[in-house]
């Protein structure tokens, strides 16, 4: 469904990598800080342009699309640090997320989100700046779902959250997976990610160093070393 091959100039964080995501799959992209994960998602979402290489989605070449065109093509990104609009209310944030769908559909999607995220329903008219970290992350995900994406990407959804809330985020990912959604998730919390992922890629210093199913990678005893590059000396 999604295929990506990219090549960047020397001044960039990512060198020569490719990845693919099949329909209905949950794919994890893990690796330490600075590995280039965010750069990759940014490229797929159209925020950054690769020096060379292509992004293909559902058989079409979508390389070089602007972010709004990518979204209309069916790709949505929950950005790192959530980036919710703090001055807008919760429901306004959701409406912005659904700006590309018709107004009738938007209101039915709003109802759907209200069911999916009861916490948000209670704070519908609260400015999003007043939400807690966990609520804000749910809002960010709900906002992205408002565009009815066929591929949902998340950048570090558990970043900066307390352990209880990290649990909540992964439960949420699990439930999105159960709904049959296609997800591509960048995470630093590798074990948790691998537990919910069908497949995963390990990216380090701009290079793919491992790839496999979630369980396969979990069983690899050298995961920690692969991950942070420690040569057990």
């Amino acid at each position: 469904m999604l295929g990506l091959t990219t090549k960047y100039g020397s001044i960039s964080a990512v060198r020569d990598v490719s990845l693919s995501v099949g329909e209905g799959e949950v794919v994890g992209l893990i690796g330490p800080n600075g590995a280039g994960k965010t750069t990759m998602l940014g490229t797929i979402a159209g925020l950054l342009e690769p020096t060379s290489g292509t992004v293909r989605f559902e058989g079409n070449d979508v390389s070089g699309y602007s972010p709004d065109k990518m979204l209309k093509a069916g790709l949505a990104l929950v950005p790192e640090h959530r980036r919710i609009f703090t001055d807008l209310t919760v429901v306004e944030n959701l409406k912005v997320g659904g700006i590309t769908v018709g107004s009738a559909e938007r209101s039915s999607l709003l109802d759907e989100m209200a069911d999916l995220f009861p916490v948000l329903r209670e704070k519908w008219d609260t400015p999003a700046g007043y939400l807690s970290g966990g609520e804000a992350q749910q809002l960010a995900i709900a906002r992205a779902l408002m565009s009815k994406p066929r591929l949902l990407m998340m950048d570090e959804p558990s970043l900066g959250l307390a352990p209880v809330l990290v649990d909540l985020v992964f439960e949420l990912i699990q439930s999105l997976r159960d709904q049959g959604r296609t997800l591509l998730i960048v995470e630093q919390n590798a074990t948790r990610m691998l537990q919910v992922a069908d497949r995963a890629y390990v990216l380090r210093s701009g290079e793919m160093v491992a790839e496999g199913s979630g369980t396969e990678l979990l069983e690899r005893s050298d995961l920690f070393d692969t991950f942070v590059g420690g040569t057990s000396s």
Partner: peptide, 8 residues
């Protein structure tokens, strides 16, 4: 640094 090679 994130890179244990480097750090260690």
């Amino acid at each position: 640094d994130h890179d244990l090679n480097f750090i260690t």
